[in-house]
Design a protein around this nucleic acid. Sequence first.
DNA 1: TTTTGTTGTTTGTTATAACAAACATCGTCG
DNA 2: CGACGATGTTTGTTATAACAAACAACAAAA
Lengths: 245, 245
Amino acid sequence: MRDVARRDTERCMTALKRIEREPLWDLAHAQLRDALLAGRFEPGTVLTLRSLAESFGTSITPVRDAVTRLVAQGVLQQGPRNSAIVPHLSRRELSDLTVVRCALEGRAAREAALRRHDEAALRKLQDRLSTMQSLIAARKLESYLEHHRKFHFGIYAMSGVPLLVETIENMWLRCGPVLSYVIPEYVVLLKGWDHHTAALKAIVAGDADGAEREIVADITDAAHYLASLADTTGQLRRPSGLITS
Amino acid sequence: MRDVARRDTERCMTALKRIEREPLWDLAHAQLRDALLAGRFEPGTVLTLRSLAESFGTSITPVRDAVTRLVAQGVLQQGPRNSAIVPHLSRRELSDLTVVRCALEGRAAREAALRRHDEAALRKLQDRLSTMQSLIAARKLESYLEHHRKFHFGIYAMSGVPLLVETIENMWLRCGPVLSYVIPEYVVLLKGWDHHTAALKAIVAGDADGAEREIVADITDAAHYLASLADTTGQLRRPSGLITS
DNA sequence: TTTTGTTGTTTGTTATAACAAACATCGTCG
DNA sequence: CGACGATGTTTGTTATAACAAACAACAAAA
């Protein structure tokens, strides 16, 4: 037993690999987060603690922590009696979201263009761009959405301002549920594609104004398309069918 | 008993006054929030659930909810073993905060200038401005800080974008503890005063560029002053004495 | 003297039970 | 037949206890 302990301490000293057992509420939080972002929850659904706890196979305490966190972030809306409901997105809320996203993501693109960035990150983004192009051609929309997300945040990460990236991530989470089922019909029109390439090109050229302009155009174009889908009450709903793979 | 119920329903129907018993964790959250914003917690302090529970006279469950919420907002930093510590602010983090605040608050000022705003709100802001001036002269710094905060958020509220105001509020919470004990020495120099009047003047004139410029200048000026107070390790510390009233 | 092993304490995590308010269901009375 | 009221159920809130990991203090051995 002694040499075992010795070996343990040695490993900790040399590798510095943390054990870090993830708490249950952290796992629940991550699962709920991903589900929201992927649009697996219909807007308007009330998330009850006990049903979620049963799904996760845990007590209600961890899921309560997770839900509390999501509500604090503004990802989940709190309905009557402090119940957590996955939020609807009205045309007005979408408009507000667009304003904030333009300010934040436009600034991030600007900062990214002004920085000296490593070639590896740039090449990675360019590769991802061509991957996205082929994914669109193959109509693999779910996979495209993942790459699309990573492309955007790849740019924002190059701003060198973690707080900026974190705040933008929060905004994406808020419009995540809706985006997931309206973007697929949007991207096949290749509307946003040129903005992506132009933005990346502006960044490699160090053109801050151009980078901001293209990112803002990408956001506002998508927002206009989304707004056109709203019904007479200003609510955004799933247009026709479910996501096919 | 029957007429009591009748009267209850009648009252609910007519007045529509919500009862809304505030949960304990909400009170704890508000108290912690205010304490953080007022700088009553020394940065670096670890907030243990049991000690807070004892202070509030409740169980640890409500304070756990409150702390969880604060951590999710980024107001409290989570240290090792998920303990909540009131965050230090390094020069780097202050710089990041400044970037985000400029993007957000600059945009809010711009939106406010572009809107048709009611005269009552404008007059209220002008009154507050003169109040702030007299408070500075009287060296009533704590009261000044409150008016200063309300002046800024009065402008941001005129943007008509609640999400923007909410996000800005979150950023203020992050730098709240530090601001509280460095701003007092700053405002007596009257450095930020002209920016405030100029910003309000630009808004009434509908000058969006001017409004954004002045708000950004106000933020960056204060940030520069704050950065000059950082020590060699990049940490911002309380300069000399405590706040006197 | 320095290091190591042990023990007691602290602290976040989780489960569980009790509670109260809100909701739904259904029976009863007008 | 329709509205009102009682009752059971659902659901968030809070308290409490048990648990494990980490930290601190101390004692013993090299």
